[in-house]
Design a binder for these strands. Structure first.
Lengths: 234, 234
DNA sequence: GTCTATATATTGATAGAC
DNA sequence: GTCTATCAATATATAGAC
């Protein structure tokens, strides 16, 4: 199970770095000094805020610069193009986002493996909701910037894990069902708590909309995926 | 079970319509002649395309006008403001979107009721994916334009249906679990096939990504919600 | 590295001829 | 009702002083 490296295509990546004069440090997208990396991190942090809320077109450099506490030209010194910031965020997000799926162990016990996958995904919705929304925003737009990654790297990873699930089904460890839609349903239910957070809070209200909602969700999802809705027959 | 009227607030709505000269027919947002309504429908159809993909800020009147096959000033003759188009779409969408939940019958048989709710929601994702994405886009932005509707009308409706589910649990018809998170999980799993359509297609590939995916999803979700993943014990 | 100033394009919206 | 022309505001991005 090699850790599939997910990385967005960059046209400038192909030619050797030495070729360009590279006055601007951010040109190659890789920071050279500590201070440069720190500044870039501040920008990326601010950009995540704005992009995850407004999408690529809806976000403006002004908003990002304001959130990062610097002027617009200053921001553009570190990332010469709006698209560069977005691409960096997408690449880093994809890498982190798929880690739980990669970590499903075909040699592990099926039920604990699935249970812990659900839990990890839910924790990511709790701890990194903006990354989830960034991804969701890209999806809603038709994934113009990562469609290639989806149909190659992601598809490959899901195919592999679907096979693992199927082997568990054949051995009678879990019910025989569609492994792809099983994965979709885990994605959907867990990411819902990040992407539709406002709605979840609004519906649960003051009482149950607090931080406890994630524990409630974890308990519910565990029960749903393991036992379904039918009561134990007497 | 009164059909809760979901309607977005409009500041201009309060004062009597007769007060204004109302040169522009679209000013009040209500078409007066057949031809006006048809033009507005063309615009709304085009706007749904653009808004559902780009979100409110990301969408431009230019794009909508182009998709509607008319000039920008001409479009603005029917809807004097970008926001008016968006609000109309949101109001109409919310009304349709919540119909399946409203229709859950407390006097019906629990299992068929839930099963048919899942099916109807999935069919809506299949037949009206853009409405789903429009809603999702608004959620990702923090629902700035419908947060009030969510915490009043929607919360009220969900509270009511949660009680229905709980009464079924108490009578032993379905497993005792959290009714709110049950509803969330049905929303999440069904809407996923509209909102993340690109991803679903990319992962399933040419073979299984065709129209049959909705039937596969329906079968899977039915099994998941009814029986869960654990195999029948021998 | 950071700033002010600005070039250039696009945006939402209006004016006014027809 | 529809068009061309256009305005004011905002957008991405650059120039050049410091």
């Amino acid at each position: 199970m090699p850790p599939i490296k997910v990385k967005m295509l960059d046209k400038d990546e192909a030619k050797p770095a030495a070729e360009t004069g590279a006055k601007k440090p951010a040109k190659a997208g890789r920071p050279r000094t500590r201070i440069q990396r720190e500044k870039q991190d501040v920008i990326l942090e601010a950009a995540l805020d704005v992009f995850s809320r407004e999408g690529f077109r809806g976000a403006t450099i002004d908003q990002i610069a304001e959130a990062a506490g610097m002027s617009k030209p200053n921001l553009l010194y570190y990332f010469p193009r709006k698209e560069e910031i977005y691409k960096r965020l997408m690449t880093e997000m994809l890498d982190v986002w798929l880690a739980p799926l990669r970590d499903i162990d075909s040699d592990g016990d099926p039920v604990p493996e699935i249970r812990s996958y659900i839990r990890r995904k839910l924790e990511m919705s709790r701890d990194f909701p903006r990354q989830s929304r960034l991804f969701a925003n890209e999806m809603l737009q038709g994934a113009p910037r990562i469609i290639d990654v989806l149909s190659t790297d992601l598809k490959g990873l899901v195919d592999e894990k679907a096979k693992v699930l199927e082997s568990w089904m054949e051995r009678g460890k879990i019910r025989r069902t569609d492994p792809y839609h099983l994965i979709f349903s885990i994605w959907a239910t867990t990411q819902h708590y990040a992407d539709f957070d406002v709605q979840v809070r609004a519906v649960l209200g003051k009482g149950r909309g607090g931080e406890g909602r994630f524990e409630d969700a974890a308990r519910f999802l565990e029960t749903l995926f393991l036992y379904g809705l039918l009561p134990k027959q007497p």
